[in-house]
Design a protein around this nucleic acid. Structure first.
Lengths: 372, 372
DNA sequence: AAGGCTTGATAAAGCGGTTTATCTTCTTCG
DNA sequence: CGAAGAAGATAAACCGCTTTATCAAGCCTT
C-alpha cells in the first residue's frame, strides 16, 4: 500500500458530489457491487449477497448519494432524454393552445416512462432546419411537432441516426408519424352543416405549406360532392391559421352580398373560425342565426369563442402522448409498433353551428355534444 | 503504416460515431492537439502549429466529426443545459399564453447563449415539489416559473447546489428572481379608471397562493385611498386567474343591483377580465359603456377579447429573457448581477375601459395606446 | 479426490472527451 | 559554446459510471 506510486491524489475534492466510490468505501464493498445493487440489475456474473446489499443501501442513504447521470450516459450510451422540436410562429404558438396541449400529452408520457425532455425551438430569424443543428447526441430521439414539408431536418436526423416521430405530418413510408384523420374531419364538418340544411357552405382553407390543410379541404369537398352540392370557387377562400386571416377572408365572403354570401363557414382551425365569427358579428349579423361556423382542432380555445365553437375534435393531448409512447417503446427495443397511426376525430357541437341553443358560457363548455 | 502493432483494435465499431481519436489518427496529430484546436482554446502549454491545425480541421471536416457533448460534460463538469420548471395547472397553462410567452423569451436567450433547455413540469397528480426530484446534475441551473410560495423545491435546489432564478416570486434575500412591478400595476390601473371618472371600482383579486395577487390588490387600494375613494368590501371579490372564476365573481357583483354595482372592474389578470366581460355582456350590458374593465398581464390573449382589453402591460417575454440571461451570466462567473430586478409595467389602452373608441378588431391590436 | 457448478466479489477496461505534466527541438543570448 | 526559453507535440491521468473478465471459495458429483 503505502500510498505509493500513484502520484498526487487530490486530497480534498472541493464542492464535489458523492460518487459511487465513496459509497463503496463506506459500505466496504466494491464499486461493481454498488453499481449492480443500485441499478437493481442482476448482471451476468455479478451477484451481491443480501448482507452486502443492505450495507450498500445504508451507505448510499447515509451519504445522500444521487448518481451522476452524465457519467452513466457516457458509460451506457443512453441519455434517457427525448428532444421535442416546436415550430416557431410567434402568434401561432402563443395564441393557439395547440402546442401547449401537445406538450402536455408528451410530458405526461415522458415522465411516466422515466425520460427527460429537451426542448428545441426555431427562434425568430432562425428556422427549424437551422435549429435542428443544435440537436446533438444528448438526445436519444426527437419528436417533431408540425414539421415543415420535406425539411432538411429529416435528413439531419437520419444522418445522425436519431430516430424521430413527427406529429401532424402526412404519413410517409420512411417516417414515423402521428396524425389525426383530417380528411374525415373535413367530411363530418361538411356533413353536419348539410344535415342542418345549409347549402351555401364556404371553406376557409389553411395555408398550403401546412400538411393538414389539403386533406381537410378534400374531405369537405367530397362530402359536398356526395350530397350533390356544388361548391362555387368564390366560397373556397385560401386563408390561414391565424384569426386575423380568418377575419379578413370572411369579410371578403360577406362582401359577396346577400344572395351569394354563404350561410355557413367551415374554417381551417379554431383560431381562423374565431376570426370568422368576429367578422360576422362585427358586420351586425349573428352566429349561428345568420351564418353558422364550424372550426377544426377543438383546442381549449374553442370553449372561449363567443358563441362557443362547434368544431372537429382532434385528440390533441393523446397525439402527443402517443408520439412519445411510440418513441419510448422504440428506444426500448419494442418492434411491434404501428409507425403511422391515424387517430379518429369527432365533432364537438357547441353553439356556433346552431344545432344547440345558446346557454350560459360556463355551462356550455362542460357539456358539449359529441358526434361520430 | 501497415495497420500494425496496435493489438486488437476493434475493426468495425458498429453504429459508433466518429471520435476525437479518429480525427487525431487521420490528421496525424495527437488527441490533445485536436481537442485544443477544435475548442479554440490556447490552453496553458498546449500549442498547435498552423500546419497541424489545418490538417486537423481538414480531417474533422472529412470525417464529419461532431463531438460528444456527454463526454465533454463529464470531463468539464459543465453540461450547457439549463432547466425550466413550469407550473402545472391544466387550463392555466393551456389557455393562458403567459407561460408560452415566458418560454419564448427564455428560449431566445438560451439559444443566444449557446445553452440547451431541459423542460420539467409538474404533471397532474404529481406536484411541483415532487417533480423537482427529477432535477438532477444534468442541468447547471434552474429557472422556476411562478413557483409556489416556500416550495420544497427551493430547499432541494440548495441542497444539490443548483443555482436558480424564479420568475414571479416575491423578491427574497436568498433567492434570485425576476418580477414585474405588480404594485405599481395595481396603482396605474386604478388611477386610470379614476381619471376616467369612475368611483365605484371593483377588484377581482387573484388567488392568495399566487405571489402576484397581493401587491396588485395593494396598489389598487392605495391609489383609491389617495384619491379619497373608499372601497366597500362588497367590491373586493376574491376570484382567481381563470375566466370562469372571473365570470362568476362578476355575476355576484352584478347581483348587487343597479345602485351598488360597480361602474368599473379591475381584474386579477387578462383571463379573469375576459370572464368579467362575458358576464357583463351576457347580462345585456355593455363594456365599456355600462361597466369598464381593466385586466393585468397584457398577454397575447388581451388583443382577442371583445372588446379588446385595456390591461396592465407586463414585459412577459422580457422577463423570461432576463431570467435566462441572469442565469447564464451567473454560470459564467459574472458576479455583477442584480439578483432581484423588478421590471416596470405600463398601461396598454384598448377598448374595454372606454378611453378609446371601438374600432375594427384588426386595427385595434396593432395600435393600442401605451401610458406611463 | 479431482473436476464442475454456483455464489459472491473484484480489478480493470472502457465510454469520449479535457487537462496536466513531460519531453523534444529549435532559438536566442550572455 | 552552453544554458535558458519558447514552440510544438504527446502520453497519461481523470471525470463517474457500467460491464467484462477473472478469481476465490463452498458444495456437489462421480
Amino acid at each position: 500500500m503505502m500510498n505509493g506510486g500513484g502520484g498526487v491524489v487530490c486530497p480534498s475534492r472541493i464542492d464535489m458530489a458523492i460518487t459511487i466510490r465513496d459509497v463503496a468505501k463506506l459500505a466496504g464493498a466494491s464499486v461493481t457491487a454498488v453499481s449492480a445493487t443500485l441499478n437493481g440489475s442482476r448482471h451476468g456474473t455479478i451477484r451481491v449477497s443480501e448482507a452486502t446489499r443492505e450495507r450498500i443501501y445504508a451507505a448510499a442513504a447515509q451519504l445522500g448519494y444521487v448518481g451522476n447521470p452524465i457519467a452513466k450516459s457516457l458509460a451506457t450510451g443512453k441519455t434517457k432524454v427525448i428532444g421535442v422540436m416546436l415550430p416557431y410562429a410567434d402568434a401561432f404558438v402563443d395564441q393557439n393552445p395547440f402546442c401547449a396541449q401537445v406538450m402536455s400529452g408528451i410530458m405526461r408520457e415522458v415522465v411516466h416512462g422515466h425520460y427527460n425532455l429537451m426542448l428545441y425551438t426555431a427562434t425568430s430569424g432562425v428556422d427549424l432546419d437551422r435549429a435542428a443543428m443544435l440537436v446533438d447526441s444528448r438526445i436519444e430521439g426527437l419528436l417533431l411537432v408540425m414539421p415543415p414539408k420535406d425539411g432538411a431536418i429529416f435528413v439531419k436526423c437520419k444522418k445522425r441516426n436519431i430516430p424521430f416521430v413527427s406529429i401532424l405530418e402526412e404519413p410517409r413510408e420512411d417516417h414515423w408519424s402521428v396524425n389525426a384523420d383530417d380528411y374525415t374531419g373535413g367530411r363530418i364538418a361538411a356533413e353536419h352543416l348539410i344535415k342542418l340544411g345549409h347549402r351555401r357552405i364556404a371553406h376557409l382553407s389553411g395555408s398550403v405549406d401546412v400538411n393538414t390543410s389539403a386533406p381537410r379541404k378534400q374531405g369537405f369537398l367530397d362530402a359536398m360532392n356526395e350530397a350533390g352540392i356544388e361548391v362555387p370557387s368564390e366560397l373556397l377562400v385560401p386563408s390561414g391559421f391565424d384569426w386575423k386571416l380568418g377575419y379578413h377572408s370572411t369579410q371578403r365572403l360577406l362582401d359577396l352580398g346577400n344572395d351569394r354570401m354563404p350561410t355557413a363557414i367551415f374554417a381551417a382551425n379554431d383560431l381562423c373560425a374565431d376570426g370568422a365569427i368576429r367578422a360576422i358579428r362585427s358586420s351586425g349579423m349573428s352566429v349561428p342565426d345568420d351564418i353558422a361556423v364550424v372550426g377544426f382542432d377543438d383546442t381549449r380555445f374553442a370553449e372561449m369563442t363567443q358563441p362557443p365553437l362547434t368544431t372537429v375534435h382532434m385528440p390533441i393531448e393523446e397525439m402527443g402522448e402517443l408520439a412519445a409512447r411510440m418513441m419510448i417503446r422504440r428506444l426500448e427495443g419494442n418492434t411491434d409498433i404501428d409507425p403511422n397511426p391515424v387517430l379518429p376525430v369527432s365533432l364537438t357541437i357547441r353553439q356556433s353551428c346552431g344545432a344547440q341553443s345558446a346557454r350560459h358560457p360556463d355551462e356550455t363548455s362542460t357539456s358539449p355534444v359529441t358526434l361520430q
